[in-house]
Simulated assay, not measured.
Amino acid sequence: MNKFHGTGVALVTPFKADGSVDFEGLKNLINYLVDGKVEYLVSLGTTGEASTLNKDEKKKIWKFTAEINNGRLPLVAGIGGNDTLAIAKDMKEFDTEGYHAILSASPYYNKPTQEGIYQHYKLLSESSSLPIFLYNVPGRTGSNMSSDTTCRLANDFKNIIGMKEASGNFDQFNQIMRDKPKEFLLISGDDPVALPMISLGAVGVISVIGNAMPQQLSAMVRLCLKGDYAAALPLHLNLIEFTRLMFAEGNPAGAKAALKHFGVCEDHLRLPLVKVSQSLRQQIITESDRITNYNIL
């Protein structure tokens, strides 16, 4: 099986109460996810609060993550932004030791045209020594990468190997699956639609809820990839309320609240993000306990 088939987890970045990076918490999280049998890890995506980390902090987190992982799982680094030349420079300077690919979100805020998005990724493709995953998340970037642009990039650049698709647009998913090169990997960028996307031909999910529920989610995804949707569906349905709670007051506040409950790391965030409300925290605790007592086998 391809190393990027299955469940990838977009790691949260644990912080201490003073706002500094909690490396012990990050170590706990990595080990928790390895033990939870996920297929790969993504370091410093949106869920990792990368936008609030400076360059030195990012370098330390990437290096530490590779050291703690120690080759146990494939690693993907999130390197993105809205300044194409700066991202290209970051990719050229990135220490690839221990990493297998880069995930790069379509530029946010600038709202480029489809040609602008194409030229952006063209330059990144030429700048990266690692394979690249496209990342389409219009709810955050303010612009959608069309299926035509996705497939154009997939056909033109061999080191653009796949896409995390979080548009929620099934017509777009259908067109990508129809027109993409056979080897190009379509990956769900939204936990709630991982099952139906895999039924269309996606190869898995890059998950938020997998931070807290790695065993439950990865078991469901593996069943889907085997084509056993009858067995996967109860696991999928069992996670629906938990998933809703994870995003009720923003990502990754919900995931961090669950991780604190499980004793993996604290739930501190960097402004402008804040912890979940007390009422939501209690709902997360209740649902977390219910799910952990559910027989996934």
Rank of each mutant, 00 (worst) to 15 (best):
R178N: 12
G98P: 06
T149W: 07
N251Q: 06
A248H: 09
F23G: 07
L223Q: 01
C151Q: 11
H120C: 04
M220D: 00
I206Q: 06
K226F: 06
T13Q: 08
H236W: 12
I68A: 05
G139C: 00
E67R: 03
V9F: 06
I240H: 14
T13S: 15
I176D: 04
L269P: 01
E249P: 04
S20I: 05
K63L: 06
R270M: 09
D179V: 03
L269R: 04
N69Y: 07
I61W: 08
K60G: 09
I296R: 13
A17M: 09
L124M: 11
F184Y: 14
C224H: 05
D95L: 12
L29W: 01
R72E: 15
A230M: 09
I160R: 01
I198S: 05
D18P: 04
A258F: 04
R270S: 10
Y109K: 05
L29H: 11
E126R: 10
E266C: 08
K89R: 14
L297M: 07
I68Q: 02
F23N: 00
P107E: 11
G142Q: 03
Q114W: 10
K89Q: 14
S20V: 00
P192G: 00
A66D: 02
S147Q: 10
P214S: 00
F64V: 06
A50T: 15
V34S: 07
